[in-house]
Simulated scan of single mutants.
Amino acid sequence: MRWTVPNILTLLRLLAAPGVAIMFLYFSRPLADWFALLLFGAAAATDWIDGYLARAWKQETKFGTMLDPIADKAMVVIALLVITGFSGMNPWILLPATVILFREVFVSGLREFLGDTAGLLKVTKLAKWKTTAQMVALSVLFSQGIFEHFFVMQTLGMEPGLIADILAGREEDVLGIGWKHQGMLVTWWGGVICLWLAAALTLLTGFDYFRKALPFLKEEARA
């Protein structure tokens, strides 16, 4: 194994994956949301940087090729578990998350079954777009948690009618809850749309891998 800069970045991304969940164990919200967002965003950025450096510096290695998709999957799976939990198992999050997790398990099983021939399931451009969509969606949903926390804390104890009047512009918005509410809605629906898009791309790439593996899954004809 060669300790090149791209390989070190990939390893750091893998180690950052459980750190996203650990943030919520050691910090209270919204600090946990901020730290998780920054850690996840920085780790997601290395997904592009390490690949670019490996190609530019001609430092592509077997170790990096093996570890890169593992780090990506660990990041996505752990972030999905955290966001699904804090969303209260909201079906808008739970359903695409289930699709993504199912596909990852299914394709990993295919690779294990194919063994030496698993090389035919190389990462495609569509799969890279899928990973990008997943990371963008999860980053946006982490930021939604920040807006939601501040909105909920600043409206705690307020009469529902007063909140409605402030949001409708009939009362002065001294605390700025209007833009926090707007940010909460925009990041929620933006994150949900991106997550469903990622789930659709996930299904497409999973079907593509299954189609490529299908010839190796057929039973041999018996005499």
Results as ranks from 00 to 15, higher is better:
21 A>S: 08
22 I>N: 04
23 M>I: 03
25 L>E: 13
29 R>E: 15
31 L>V: 15
32 A>K: 05
33 D>C: 11
33 D>V: 06
39 L>C: 02
41 G>N: 09
41 G>V: 12
44 A>Y: 08
46 T>C: 02
47 D>R: 05
48 W>H: 13
49 I>W: 12
49 I>H: 06
52 Y>G: 08
54 A>P: 00
55 R>K: 09
56 A>E: 13
59 Q>P: 09
65 T>G: 14
65 T>E: 15
65 T>C: 00
65 T>H: 15
66 M>W: 15
68 D>G: 04
68 D>N: 03
70 I>N: 07
70 I>Y: 01
72 D>W: 10
73 K>R: 14
74 A>H: 04
75 M>G: 12
76 V>E: 13
77 V>T: 15
77 V>M: 13
77 V>Y: 04
84 T>I: 09
85 G>Q: 14
87 S>P: 01
89 M>Q: 14
91 P>H: 13
92 W>L: 11
94 L>M: 12
96 P>S: 11
96 P>N: 01
97 A>I: 06
99 V>G: 12
99 V>T: 04
100 I>R: 13
102 F>R: 13
103 R>E: 03
103 R>S: 12
103 R>W: 04
108 S>Y: 06
109 G>C: 11
110 L>R: 12
111 R>P: 07
112 E>M: 12
113 F>S: 02
115 G>A: 03
117 T>E: 11
118 A>L: 00
120 L>E: 12
121 L>Q: 11
122 K>Q: 03
123 V>R: 03
123 V>T: 11
124 T>W: 00
125 K>N: 13
125 K>W: 14
127 A>F: 04
128 K>E: 02
129 W>R: 12
129 W>D: 07
132 T>C: 14
136 V>F: 08
137 A>P: 02
137 A>I: 06
137 A>F: 03
138 L>N: 10
